[in-house]
């Protein structure tokens, strides 16, 4: 069975999260990190991938509407089962990539 690629679903949210967490990360770096995150989501075990993409669709829709980012941030804070794990997954993949590839990155994402 052919897989739906993750990038169109997780990409915009992952990018927005990185802008928030690491505002000084260069756009080219950010694109590289987002591509890595999507690649990793593509290789998740089938059930987890299905769940991640389902939750990712909700977040993608929120990010797409004006003011939706505030809604997304609210959703991230709610103690809902598994929903909070989605941004955590995006962040952990992203941070692991950033500091492994550019270890002198500052806390705001600038290259030292």
């Amino acid at each position: 069975m052919r897989q739906v690629p993750a990038l169109p679903i997780v990409g915009s949210f992952a990018e927005r999260l990185l802008v928030d967490d690491l505002p000084d990360l260069q756009p080219a770096q950010r694109r590289e990190v987002v591509a890595f995150i999507a690649h990793r989501v593509d290789s998740l075990p089938s059930f987890t991938r299905f769940g991640v993409l389902a939750i990712g669709t909700v977040f993608r829709m929120l990010v797409a509407v004006p003011g939706g980012w505030l809604g997304a941030k609210l959703l991230m804070k709610l103690p809902l089962p598994f929903v909070g794990e989605y941004p955590r997954l995006m962040r952990s993949l992203g941070f692991a990539y950033v500091w492994e590839h550019w270890p002198t990155t500052t806390p705001t994402g600038a290259l030292a």
């Binding site: 955590r88 941070f95 950033v98 500091w99 492994e100 500052t106 806390p107």
Partner: peptide, 24 residues
């Protein structure tokens, strides 16, 4: 504890722990 893994260990409380990441 490579730099990526140190960053991971800080991310749950990133707003206040981020300052430590360059100290890896």
């Amino acid at each position: 504890s490579n730099p990526g893994l140190v960053a991971l260990s800080l991310l749950d409380q990133w707003p206040t722990f981020r300052r430590a990441v360059t100290d890896w």
